[in-house]
Design a protein around this nucleic acid. Sequence first.
DNA 1: TTGTAAGCGTTATCAG
DNA 2: CTGATAACGCTTACAA
Lengths: 331, 331
Amino acid sequence: MRDVAERAGVSVQTVSNLVNARFHLMTDGTRARVEQAMTELVYHPNVAARSLRSDRAETLAFLLLDEGRRFLADPMTDLVIGGIGDVVRDRGYALLIQPARPDAPRPELLKPLLEHRADGAFLFLSGDRGLRRWYARRVAEFEFPFVLFEHIDDPRIPCVSTDDRAGARLLTEHLVSRGHSRIAFVAASVPWPMIEQRLLGYRDALAAANLTPIELFRGDWTPAAGAEHARVLMSSDEPPTVIMCSNDLLAVGAVRGLREVGLNVPADVAVTGFDDFDFAELVVPALTTVRVPGYELGRVAAELLVDQLEGRVATRRRIVLPVELRVRESG
Amino acid sequence: MRDVAERAGVSVQTVSNLVNARFHLMTDGTRARVEQAMTELVYHPNVAARSLRSDRAETLAFLLLDEGRRFLADPMTDLVIGGIGDVVRDRGYALLIQPARPDAPRPELLKPLLEHRADGAFLFLSGDRGLRRWYARRVAEFEFPFVLFEHIDDPRIPCVSTDDRAGARLLTEHLVSRGHSRIAFVAASVPWPMIEQRLLGYRDALAAANLTPIELFRGDWTPAAGAEHARVLMSSDEPPTVIMCSNDLLAVGAVRGLREVGLNVPADVAVTGFDDFDFAELVVPALTTVRVPGYELGRVAAELLVDQLEGRVATRRRIVLPVELRVRESG
DNA sequence: TTGTAAGCGTTATCAG
DNA sequence: CTGATAACGCTTACAA
């Protein structure tokens, strides 16, 4: 910066003003000279120095608690990060992704915040509810701006979510209306807020129809796990007539698992998914599922956080996005 | 840091030494006292100050040239980032993702480097070959450590790639051996290094078998584009007997497009993919494709870059990973 | 409108 | 082994 100032024959102060778009503090001639000097020297401000001084990193952190070794393999995570990424880029921030395992309190998850590497955070957490709360409380205690991806009661906490409970209820009601009475719900073993809501919606609808829940929690979110679920359920004494999978990945696996034991979907057993990932309508049979707007969810969360950071008063700090039933061939 | 020093009754220097694991510069007693003070004050070093002083951000940048608005939606990009992410985390670096459009020279792509936000970069570039070279040259000129995801001749440039050309040749030969003589190759309109190699492999095999290429470049990498390709090709005067799609996403779309006009795969027309994404063996019919080790590619690149950064002499600076033919049901 | 000088938290140098 | 001090590049009072 000193070099630029010297070359343009002005003080560093003026260069700084220009970099920070305070154009009213200089003549047009000065501005032009400084700009020329900047281009000639290929000058770029050093962000470390800037954020040391201003205490703002202009970076937001996506803090992810996920047991998978390859978190980017999860389509819902991708959608959410995609939505966040588009917004924060447009608003001039960088995005830092920090994953950790959901099995125990992990200090590294909050490191980007504590080390002043990020100005605020998105909390996309799985695992035990108590542990999730612990992280949220800690971030709140340190007074870091953040947005939580989970609907919780505390009105002081900004949170965004999708209406998974309503979606699951609709889907279950649809299945009941088709005459099904033995409806199984399957999910991976690690809890996720979205999945908890889907389970509640399922139970709501079953209770209303006076049916008995059949619930199975095990494995991860891979098609292989879905196939295994299907095998386990179909070899029980009273096998279900529908396998309601808590996401599309499990569903596509369940379909395959059923086919391998000679069962046809939906003729012999129905299968439903959840999320409506791109492939859901491409597989055979096309999946009946619930569309969850993950990309939008990310966008909304990012807007909420950036507004919060820049001191704008958010109109709403607790947002729930609607979901939509998609009836196709599988159930 | 000053607070920690005061509380422990030592100088800031000693605290700094401890943070930087220079334990031999203090007594065990001092060390224990300082560590206690750090925990009590929940102290975390400020990375901005550290990198200002040391001129190292301990961050690596993934510089991506992709026309898609939602770059994370691409499975190959995800795999590569996943591999990189695992390695850089283990080696103590953060990863910054910076995307830009491949249509023109985009100064923002190199900003993380120029602003000293990152110490080195991964160049995952698409678009015109000349433009790709321009970026690589610029990064090299500034002497930033980097790794290029593309095989190029210049021996000074560290690069990693997969043997797409050989894979495409094998796949084409397989199709020829099944008696096909009208084999079409389809791809999106924006060039990618990997795709260029696949095209070359396809042409190699066709030339060897004395067959005429049928090539179609248009649209993007979505299943919808694949369906459109299929429609265009099948309505031509001499429709092909195989549609060789340059990735699995197009292939799954092509299968669907064919079904919609009443054609059966592989009975009426064969379809092949490329990459072997997770869904390739789950769709119906299961895709014949070529397995490209994207995750491994990312890992290898990250190891190369970190070694380079930390002054270790790389054993090899130009790495090509093997691919594998996967013959399934579709072709 | 422009210039001067202090200070952000850390690390490196050098003296005790 | 420990402590004082300067410097990294920038922003922001405040002075000219």
